[in-house]
């Protein structure tokens, strides 16, 4: 039974747990929190493509997230159907990502970060100040959720399942992406840009395509967000959202598939718990940042995962053939 290993068992168990979640959680509030975790996990995975695998830290992804959300919401508001709205949102987000990518990739490192931050602020500026288009601070309501295949997503359960399906597609796409030659090339541009260039790779193009890929999934997450909340306001496009997404990626551990998902769960749960007691989410977010950097610069999950894995493998190697599989590369 060589196809059984700890990794596959874990994935199988996780899938079963996720698929039956509404049954064993029961309470619609927690089901909704789970939907939030999954949709932000899609966002974090998208950001991780750039931060983890590309070594490009973006602080403007809230702009892409909100771009999809606003386009979708405004198209629906104008009376278009869900299919048209979703399609338009994705097209607009891809176009925006292309513009962002062209401009931000004039630089790498700090320059990239600063430019994406400024670009994200442009989207915020439009959402907040151009009241004629975006309704300003009042935001835009999304009155209905779509009904794919005739199934209404109005209830928490069904919306959770729809989010789960999108989430699984996203994870599968990311897994394929990471293992593909293109994923390897992207990691190459992160670690040894000059050598990749000398080997004949078009470093800029690789980064640009990664940016588009990341932008696309950020857009998908943005659409899930407006359907979940049925409302969007300029707050979504603010720097805080980009920072939260970055926290998800970092706290979970960059350049792994699992990291952003765990990070999303951590941040969403913490945000819900903290908000229930005090109104000081920003303070908590800031303190977490400072604590992580000061005491656990590698991120919360990689450390514990490595400990867990070494312990598990030590146990497993006694029971079966040693699983000498190296998973996940650590960023510098």
């Amino acid at each position: 039974m060589s196809w059984i290993n700890s990794r596959r068992v874990a994935i199988g168990v996780a899938l079963v747990l996720l698929a039956t979640l509404p049954v064993w959680i029961g309470n619609p509030y927690y089901i909704n929190v789970s939907s939030q975790i999954l949709l932000f996990a899609v966002f974090a995975l998208a950001l991780n493509v750039l931060v983890g695998y590309g070594g490009l830290v973006s602080l403007g992804h809230a702009g892409l997230f909100a771009m999809a959300g606003y386009t979708g919401a405004l198209m629906l508001d104008a009376g278009h159907g869900h299919f048209v709205a979703i399609l338009a949102a994705l097209v607009v987000t891809l176009a925006t990502s292309a513009v962002f990518g062209v401009l931000a990739l004039r630089s790498t490192g700090i320059g990239f970060l600063m430019i994406t931050l400024a670009l994200g602020q442009i989207v915020w500026g439009i959402a907040y100040r151009w009241a004629g288009l975006t309704n300003g601070d009042n935001g835009v309501n999304v009155t209905t959720r779509p009904a794919p295949l005739g199934i209404s997503l109005a209830s928490a359960d069904y919306f959770y399942y729809a989010t789960l399906v999108v989430f699984l597609i996203a994870v599968a796409t990311m897994a394929v992406f990471v293992r593909s030659p293109f994923g390897a090339a992207l990691r190459g541009t992160r670690d040894q840009a000059r050598r990749m260039n000398a080997l004949g790779y078009n470093v800029w193009l690789i980064r640009f395509l990664a940016f588009l890929f990341s932008g696309f999934w950020s857009g998908v997450a943005g659409l899930l967000f407006i359907y979940y909340n049925q409302f969007i306001s300029p707050q979504v496009s603010a720097l805080t959202t980009s920072a939260e997404a970055l926290l998800m990626v970092i706290s979970g551990g960059t350049a792994t598939l699992l990291g952003p998902i765990i990070g999303s769960a951590l941040v969403v749960i913490m945000k819900n718990v903290v908000s229930a007691y005090i109104e000081r989410w920003n303070l908590v977010l800031g303190v977490i940042f400072v604590l992580i950097i000061s005491f656990m610069p590698e991120g919360l999950v990689p450390g514990s995962v490595r400990l867990w894995r070494t312990g598990w493998q030590a146990l497993w190697s006694r029971l079966s053939a040693p699983a000498a599989r190296k998973t996940g590369e650590q960023g510098p």
Binding site: T240, L247, I250, L285, G286, F289, V290, I293, S294, P297
Partner: peptide, 26 residues
């Protein structure tokens, strides 16, 4: 705090961003 992170962009960003949020809320 920042001194210990010399040359590491991502931690510097997180640290300064973290302080920005803390200061804003305070």
């Amino acid at each position: 705090l920042l001194r210990r992170l010399e040359g590491q962009i991502l931690p510097q960003v997180l640290l300064t961003l973290g302080f920005a949020f803390i200061i804003a809320d305070i």
